[in-house]
Amino acid sequence: MSSTEPPRITWRAEPVPDGLRVTQAYVWAIDPEDGRVLIQDRGTQHARRYSLPGGRPEPEDGGDPVRTAAREALEESQIHIDVSRAVYLGYQLVEGDTRYDGPHAQLRYAAPISSYEPIGPDPDNGRIHRRYMVSLDRAPEILAWGEPGAAQAALAKQAGLDLGLRVDAPAPDGHRDEVKARYLVCHDYGMGALWWWVTARSAKEIMERIADVVVSFSPESARWADENGYEEIDIDAPDPNELSSMKATRDAQRQQQGFGAVVGRGTVYFRCVWGEYEKQAPWWDDENAAYFLLEIGEDGYRKRGIFEYVEGPSHRMGEDDWAFNPPYDLYEPEWARFEIDQQTFEAAWEAAIPFPVDDE
C-alpha cells in the first residue's frame, strides 16, 4: 500500500486480539431521556465536520479504554457518561496508517449520558464542539463512516435497547449547546389535551417538577406542534405561567411519603379502591363495585385493567379496549399504597372474564 492511499478500515465486533495496539477509544453517548446519540459538530471549517467523542489513551487512564472514552467525552463535549453501564461494541482495524508502525485498533463503546456540563473549549486545542443530538438511525448518514459506521450504529442501538434507553423512539434531531433542551410536553386528560414546548435540563426534570404531564418523543407530534406554534416555557420561568399550578401541585406532593416510589420500575401493578373517576363510568354500581386492578407502563399509560366486584365475576379489559386512556401520574404519592406484584395481577386476570360489550 503506497503512502498516498488512505488507510484501510474494517469493523470487527469482537475483542481486540492480544498484541494489537489500541490507539483510540470513542463512545456512542446516548441521552437516556430522549434516546438520541451525541455527535460532535466541529463546524464547516473542519475537513470532517462530524465525529463522536473520543481520543487517544493517556497515562492518567490507567490502561482502561472506558476511562479514555469518558475523559475525552468530558473534555470535548462536556458530558459525563455512565462508565458502569458502558457496553463494548468492537473495534475498527486500521491498516496502512503511516502514522503507526503496523495495524492498530480503534475501540468503540456505547454508554448513557449521566449529565451535561455547560459547553466549553476542548482543553487540548481550545476548540468548541457543538453537541448535535440525533437518532441512531440517522447517525451513520451524518458521520459518513461507511459500512463500519453503520455497523457500529446498529450495535449501539441494540445496546441502548438492552440498557432500557429510548433509542427506538428518540426526540427530533437538534443541537444541544446549552445545559437545557426543548421538550414537547402534554397534559392529556383523555378527551382532549394541552400542549407546550418546555425548556428543561432533562425529561426527567420535567416529570419531577410538573404534575399530570407526559413528555412526547414522537417526531410526528413534534412536527405537528411546531406547525401549531405552541407556547414555549422555560421550566425555571417566574410565576405565574401556564405551568405554575401543576408545579405547585408537584411541590406539595414532593413532601408526602411515597412520592415517586413506583417511578423507574418498568411496568407496575396496582389494586385500588374505586375512586370518584370510576363512579362516573356507565358500568358503575355503587353497591357492587369494590376494586380496580391496573397494569400501567413506565410511560404512565394503562395497559390492562380488571374491574373487581363484591358479587359476581370480575371483568377484564385489554390495552385496546379503552375508549379513553389518559396517562396516570406515577409520581403521585398514593400509588405506593396500592401497589401489588405482577403474580397477583396475573392471577386476577386469569380469573376474570372479558368485559361485556353493549351491541346497541
Rank of each mutant, 00 (worst) to 15 (best):
Q255S: 09
R127K: 14
R49H: 12
I39Y: 01
Q255C: 05
A211M: 11
Q45N: 15
G260F: 09
V185H: 01
G190Q: 11
L74I: 11
D122T: 09
L136E: 08
Y26S: 11
R49C: 10
K204C: 00
A139G: 10
H187T: 03
E147L: 12
Y331K: 03
P238K: 13
L184F: 02
G90E: 10
I340S: 08
P313E: 06
A200L: 01
Y88I: 11
D173C: 01
E58A: 15
A153R: 07
D162C: 14
D122C: 09
S84F: 03
A222E: 08
K204M: 01
E60L: 12
D226Y: 07
F270L: 15
G54R: 02
T267N: 09
I353K: 11
E205V: 02
W224P: 00
Y50D: 06
E33D: 15
D64S: 09
E319M: 07
P57K: 12
S51F: 11
P57A: 13
A159S: 15
K247V: 04
F307A: 13
E208Q: 05
Y91C: 11
V87F: 08
R8E: 13
V273E: 15
Y331H: 14
G229R: 09
D226I: 04
D173G: 01
T344S: 13
A29G: 06
H175E: 13
M133T: 01
Q45I: 12
S218C: 05
V87K: 08
V198Y: 00
P59T: 14
I340F: 08
I296T: 02
A111G: 03
A289V: 13
D97F: 11
F270M: 12
A222Y: 04
W224M: 13
F292E: 08
W349S: 12
Q92P: 01
R223W: 09
W322I: 05
E350M: 12
V94W: 14
L74V: 07
A252R: 13
R49M: 11
G174V: 02
Y91L: 13
V37P: 02
F259V: 06
G266Y: 13
G229L: 07
A348F: 15
R271P: 03
G275Y: 08
D97Q: 12
P326M: 11
L243M: 09
R130M: 02
P118I: 00
